[in-house]
Amino acid sequence: MNAFHAKYQTEIEQILAKYPPERKRSAVMPLLFLAQRDDNYISPNELADIAEILEMSVTDVASVVGFYTLFYDQHEGRYRIQVCTDLPCALRGAETFFEALCKELGVSSGGTTPDGLFTIEEVKCLAACHRAPVFQVQGDGEIAYYENQTAETALQVIAALREKAVQEARSREGAA
């Protein structure tokens, strides 16, 4: 059993049980989400371990990572702030909202804040067009929606996440 398998053994078994035993490959996306849980990115080791569990080649798993936009093989912000600027939202001020947010955070589209916590990006429709402006936060293995936003409310969400990260760092130091 490789390191990734050992780390998430129960969950991996649960995921594999969803698919016919001879169709293990179906589990590749759920396992990639699992790999992203701790640091929002898939490391080369995790990639190799997943390939081994599913009896796929590493290249095959890597191509899946490359195809789907919610998988990352680069280490960026712990939290990805993904603002929808697609047509219906843009008709209700989403582009202005996005620019204001970038300005407040001092980063441009696709950039990461200096503390390494937040990467801000524009995304396509999130199925929340009636509640524009809207963004989602992808991080800590979860995806959460924030709807009917203003720059002020968005900054509060970001401040709360930052506070959480600071608290965690403190308690880690305390434990050490």
Partner: peptide, 20 residues
């Protein structure tokens, strides 16, 4: 769960995706 690809709403692409 899919992972961010509009095309996976198209039924045969969806099946491919479900097959990993």
């Amino acid at each position: 769960l899919g992972a961010g690809a509009y095309i996976c709403g198209e039924e045969t692409a969806l099946l491919e995706s479900l097959e990993g």
